[in-house]
Design a protein around this nucleic acid. Structure first.
Lengths: 344, 344
DNA sequence: ACGTGTCACTGACACGTGTAACTAAATCGT
DNA sequence: ACGATTTAGTTACACGTGTCAGTGACACGT
């Protein structure tokens, strides 16, 4: 549904944006010389006085090179595209992200986040491909299909990397084994003598790709024991939590893995408000190891998920770009461990 | 027929990304026709059979247009650049952000977030200018100097918009009056009979541009009354909070405005742990109105800051782009109000 | 004087796209 | 029947940049 855009060719207040030709004219040299000077090309020798004249002219005009023209000519770019839909950001994700960006910049890549909020998977892939990125790193929130990967590679992307709950065919996939999170949490509860274990499933749709595998992991941990697992849908608001707490006794649960620390705090408060003792009557375990969980009474037990380091991921991107012939591999990250505090 | 020079020795069957010329060849038409068909140009008439052939050829080759070449030719892009240094976490910001992106996309803009982590202000502005965005929207975390604005405008940006604690010369500035936040919080405490009021100043450097004005606002509210304001530096960890709580009695404070809800929770827990009663001995007020604050006992009083709506901001961007001749104005957003719960 | 280098540049082309200007054929109006 | 108009395209150029292949001018060795 792209209707032709009526663009307005009128220029604001006359002066056009300066190009390297303008710099050349002002410095009294050819355009080629300008290019050589400003890029510090080492294969060509330009005298020092000329270099100075060119630099001064560029400075005076406020010349800034045109990235699109440059990468068009070069036939390739050093742009790494990070698709972002809606990010349920936490502090540890935020830190990872900063480090990742910093490391990529240090490797001389240009990091661009491209939001594609309301688009279908293939439609989005096409939009990304238009930018001709050298690599695409999808951080889990966006589903990228094999079809989409094919479009991207055909458009010149030398590496497609996904970091998420499940791998994608044709990509360097880092699978953060969400099942493992549910598994260790549940195993911990079983070992502590709990038998009827609830698992909170957030109703927020963006979280389904995490919560599903976590529930599966919980079931895996319960298998072979006499413990049972009960899924508990929950919205992130007080009303929903109170409702769940109100029918807690009829559910007959003696423990709950609450998806993450925020849902855990929400639910724990509701449970306490209806007179249930934590951890005596109900054990509660969250995930993410937020600072705030330590401030509660009882202190919240949690699962600490060790994120991949930003620097490592950046190096993976760089390697994949420089050696596109090595076939993509799927690797699992399964560093998750329970931090036991007082609530379990 | 003038035979075109076949300057490509490598076959497109291998690893060449298809261009509109390839589509034209396959469909047996000229490149111009391909462009007309794929862009639905209404000023030129192309027969339906030809249209179909072109579309099929494009589909078969997996053709995706080259955005850089397109905007180079067009002389302008519809890209809105959002510089982001470190992502400020928070649910209300996240929601605002999604809505903003969605609204801009709906207005046919391309939203690109560009991270410039370790760069100086002017250096960063130059990097942004290279991308030739039609508009730049700075969301507060990054300081953008008047110098930087000049660079951007000279590079063709038709609108520069800043949303933050203070305005920037030459931009459409939306100033979120942080002083007002401290002012209403303090005024509330004074009206409740408190006289010695602490104001938490986070030591995290990125927050200085918010905490400074908030402190000033607090002082403003105390002026003309017999209340006094005491700045309290604090790190976001338990140790720092405990330290502060330990010397609370010697400080002789009967209230604290804790910068935001997270710092408030941290400090309130530390105060309670040393035996101080909230709110009887110390009143605590946070800011941001997080859900978690409502789960504490006592429930946390807070300042709700009404963010500008994403859709509104998107419309402002669009207006500024279409009418670059209207001079930029600075507007203040001062919708902040205290939500009184139990901690004050 | 002559070839051979070196120095300091310049001319020209290609990258992929959009569009104004042109053209050859078909159709129409009278 | 013949110019005028419409149809369905094509040719050619421009956008801003990087870089290969020259090209004078001058120095040097013999």
């Amino acid at each position: 549904m792209s209707q032709p855009t009526e663009h307005t060719p009128e220029r604001p207040s006359g002066r056009a944006v300066p190009t390297s030709a303008d710099v050349a004219r002002l410095a009294g040299v050819s355009r080629a010389t300008v290019s050589y000077v400003l890029n510090n090309t080492s294969t060509v020798r330009i005298s020092e006085p000329t270099r100075r004249r060119v630099r001064e002219a560029a400075e005076e005009l406020g010349y800034v090179p045109h990235a699109a023209a440059r990468s068009l000519r070069a036939g390739h770019s050093r742009m790494v595209l990070l698709p972002t839909s809606h990010v349920p950001v936490g502090p540890l994700y935020s830190q990872f992200f900063d480090e990742f960006q910093w490391a990529l910049r240090r490797l001389d890549y240009t990091v661009v986040q491209y939001g594609s909020v309301g688009l279908e998977a293939e439609e989005a892939a096409r939009a990304w491909a238009e930018l001709r990125p050298v690599a695409v790193v999808s951080l889990g929130e966006v589903r990228l299909t094999g079809q989409g990967v094919e479009i991207l590679k055909r458009s010149g992307a030398r590496a497609v990397i996904t970091l998420g709950a499940q791998g994608v065919e044709g990509t360097h996939a880092l699978v953060m084994d969400q099942g493992r999170v549910g598994e260790v949490a549940t195993a911990h509860l079983v070992e502590s003598g709990r038998r009827r274990i609830g698992v909170v499933i957030p109703e927020e749709p963006g979280l389904a790709m995490f919560s599903g595998p976590r529930l599966d992991g919980a079931r895996r941990a319960a298998r072979g024991t006499d413990a049972t697992v009960v899924p508990l849908p929950l919205r992130y608001d007080e009303e929903s939590a109170n409702e769940l707490a109100a029918r807690w006794r009829e559910l007959g649960l003696d423990a709950v893995f609450a998806y993450n620390d925020e849902y855990a705090m929400l639910l724990m408060r509701a449970l306490q408000d209806v007179g249930l003792a934590v951890p005596e009557e109900v054990a509660v375990v969250g995930a993410d190891d937020l600072l705030l969980g330590r401030l509660l009474r009882p202190r919240l037990s949690t699962v600490r998920i060790d994120m991949v380091l930003g620097r490592e991921l950046a190096e993976l991107v760089d390697r994949a770009v420089r050696e596109p012939e090595v076939p993509p591999r799927t690797r699992s990250l399964l560093a998750s461990q329970v931090v036991r505090r007082e609530s379990s």
